[in-house]
């Protein structure tokens, strides 16, 4: 038991260390791509808390991503806030939104939950369009110059430097991954899995299953929201595209591909899928075809994803 825990911790830290050393050998283009992927991986990590551990399949997680994105970007654009306070504000707003939406949507289960989250997300998307005077709608807003650098603990941080952005993204990803790792391997993770595997049994043992699911929703939404905020702040752009169904589907796909209910799975899935789409979009305008084919094949043949399949066959210690 202890031995396997050590092994898995080593693996996780190893992956992060690998990402840490990567920029020294990578050309700029890939550095930028990987920065993007790492932010999306935080999104997927958050999504997986809800889907992989608590067993709740949301089709509307783009709403949380967008929530963080706008809650960080709008105060900067309209009120001249500084980057760190905007980021913290965005996290708080995402947590609140997730609690509110969770409290309502968790009254449903299964297919109804999927449709309800999809619809709520669609409402958020339409809202960003309707208030396009403030949000910039489809065209979006480019954040002003003062948001391209900030001071923290006496250090000046320059957000136009690709390297700085890379390490900020890595820092956020590491922090998120370690937090999730701790939670899913602790009591909370056990409660989530219990609800996923048999909710009525869990309730009859004395667990408040609604609260357990709500916790998953809030943590998941907050992580997704901070990913959105980080994305907006690092690349100085906010827009409605990030609230579309497309983003909700993408994050589901990342998670499915990498491995549902594993900590590293969503990270791996984000990398593979992002490069796959990147590859296809160079050759055809219909690159979403790849998304479709991947979804069908995964759900038919690898519903556990890459790491899920590995864990089942050879590596039972993988968390």
């Amino acid at each position: 038991m202890d031995n396997s825990r050590k092994r898995s911790l080593t693996l996780h830290i190893g992956v992060l260390a690998f990402l840490f050393l990567l920029p020294f050998v990578l050309p700029d283009y890939h550095q930028l791509t990987i920065t993007r992927i790492m932010i999306l991986a935080i999104f997927a990590l958050g999504y997986n808390v809800l889907f992989g551990y608590a067993g709740l399949l949301s089709l509307g997680h783009a709403m949380f991503f967008a929530c963080g994105l706008y809650a960080a970007g709008l105060p900067i654009y309209h009120l001249g806030w500084a980057v760190p306070s905007a980021f913290l504000f965005a996290i708080a707003v995402s947590a609140l939104a997730a609690a509110l939406i969770g409290a309502i949507a968790l009254r449903t289960q299964g297919v109804a939950f999927m449709i309800v989250t999809l619809m709520f997300s669609q409402v958020v998307y339409l809202t960003t369009l309707y208030f396009s005077d403030t949000t910039g709608g489809d065209e979006g807003l480019v954040l002003p110059g003062h948001a391209r650098s900030f001071e923290i603990l006496g250090m000046q941080v320059d957000l136009t430097s690709p390297q700085v952005r890379y390490y900020i993204a890595l820092g956020l990803l590491s922090a998120s991954a370690l937090i999730v790792y701790r939670w899913v391997n602790g009591g909370l993770g056990r409660e989530w899995v219990a609800v996923r595997e048999n909710e009525s049994r869990t309730r009859m043992l004395g667990y408040n299953t609604f609260l357990i699911k709500l916790k998953a929703m809030v943590i998941s939404g907050t992580l997704s929201g901070s990913a959105g905020a980080a994305y907006g702040l690092l690349f100085a752009y906010i827009g409605s595209t990030f609230a579309t169904i497309q983003y909700s589907i993408d994050v589901l796909l990342f998670t499915l591909l990498g491995g549902v209910g594993t900590v590293l799975g969503p990270i791996l899935g984000s990398f593979i899928m992002f490069y796959l789409i990147d590859f296809f979009s160079e050759h055809t305008t219909a690159y979403l075809l790849a998304t479709g084919v991947a979804l069908i094949l995964l759900i038919m043949y690898f519903p556990l994803g890459v790491l899920g399949t590995l864990r089942k066959k050879w590596l039972p210690w993988l968390p």
Binding site: L252, L288, L289, T291, G292, V293, L295, I296, I299, M300
Partner: peptide, 12 residues
């Protein structure tokens, strides 16, 4: 999930 995949395949 599978029919979302079908959506993309048909549309694209």
């Amino acid at each position: 999930v599978a029919t979302i995949g079908m959506l993309y395949v048909i549309q694209q």
